[in-house]
């Protein structure tokens, strides 16, 4: 046991350090690089230089990127555990797209506004899509094979995107804002839209982290899990509810972002092995870092423009998806 604790400790420390570095980079880098003194001024609210003002804008943005990243990374790990499928990811399975559709319909047809309602809509959309995709992908022989789940998710995403376009295109008044949101970006973050999301994120986080034991048991196979005294159905439901809440919240805040939930759990499994009690918290940390760093990258590549973070994660994550599909026998799944 002693031997196992060392890499765990290293893993956590390294990821925490990475998270801190991400936050610092996210505050300092961008269209304008800001020196340290002005970063501090911006953070404490003394906005008397352009640099300090930039930092004051980047502060909620960084918070949003880290929060959404943690949510997506954790949700991805839980989804991979529930479906016992190495390619599960909230973006690939269409869950984020479903959440986006509900939010868009809410804006376009029912004139809904306000962060709180967007969150509820996003969670409802994510839940419905997750159930739909899983029912189609998991039926029949062989259960939820990676190919069937991925195809069901892809088909659902295409249908949902077509629907979103059909809803948005005739509405010139909202088209611009919805289209930039739909790519997945954290650029428009403000503290007053971020705050209402915190309780949702906390509930989702707790549900997911609490389901680590069930996921561990599930990894051994459903029968064995039941034999070990786990209430598999209830545990699964709880874990899925947590993941769906996290996906819906993240999507309502910054649009559908894919591949974070795919890449991060695999990396964490490489560091920490297959125990979900470790993989889940590590995935949250690493997810936050990945989305934060992707956002910084997006700001630097397209200077002085900005590249939406959803584009960056897709570009970084898709090769990883290919690699996973190629090797197929990743650790422990």
């Amino acid at each position: 046991m002693q031997a196992q604790h060392v890499p765990r400790l290293y893993g956590f420390t390294a990821l925490l350090a990475l998270l801190g570095l991400t936050a610092v980079l996210s505050l300092t880098l961008g269209a304008r690089s800001v020196p340290w003194a002005e970063v501090w001024a911006g953070m404490t609210g003394q906005i008397d230089s352009i640099g300090a003002a930039a930092v004051a804008v980047r502060l909620p943005r960084t918070g949003l990127a880290l929060l959404a990243g943690a949510a997506l990374g954790l949700a991805g790990a839980v989804m991979q555990g529930i479906s016992r499928n190495p390619l599960a990811d909230p973006g690939i399975l269409g869950v984020n797209a479903g959440a986006a559709l509900f939010v868009v319909i809410g804006i376009a047809w029912f004139n809904i506004s306000g962060a709180q309602s967007f969150l509820w809509l996003g969670i409802a959309g994510a839940a419905l899509t997750a159930v739909f995709v899983y029912l189609i992908g998991a039926g029949g022989q062989g259960g939820a094979t990676p190919l069937k789940l991925t195809l069901a998710g892809t088909a659902t995403s295409v249908a949902v995107s077509a629907f979103i376009i059909a809803v948005v295109l005739p509405r010139n008044d909202i088209a611009g804002s919805v289209q930039s949101w739909q790519v997945g970006g954290v650029g428009g973050a403000r503290f007053d839209t971020l705050l209402p999301a915190l309780p949702f994120a906390a509930v989702g986080l707790l549900l997911c982290l609490a389901s680590a034991r069930v996921l561990n048991a599930l990894a051994l196979g459903e029968e064995l899990a039941t034999g070990l005294g786990q209430s598999v159905a209830l545990g699964r439901l709880m874990a899925a509810a947590g993941a769906v809440i996290l996906c819906g919240t993240a999507t309502a805040l910054c649009g559908p972002i894919g591949f974070v939930g795919l890449v991060v759990p695999h990396l964490c499994r490489m560091i920490a092995g297959v125990d979900y009690r470790l993989v889940l918290p590590l995935s949250a940390l690493a997810g936050a870092s990945m989305l934060g760093l992707s956002d910084v990258l997006g700001r630097l590549i397209a200077r002085p423009n900005e590249l939406d973070v959803g584009i960056v994660t897709a570009f970084v994550g898709a090769p990883f998806f290919i690699w996973t599909a190629r090797s197929f026998r990743m650790r422990g799944l």
Partner: peptide, 21 residues
């Protein structure tokens, strides 16, 4: 097999992000 199609889907996702950029 499944692998070719999955890899194709991955390549698609990556290239779509290039188009968006």
């Amino acid at each position: 097999g499944a692998r070719l199609i999955l890899i194709g889907i991955g390549v698609s996702a990556m290239l779509d992000s290039v188009t968006a950029y």
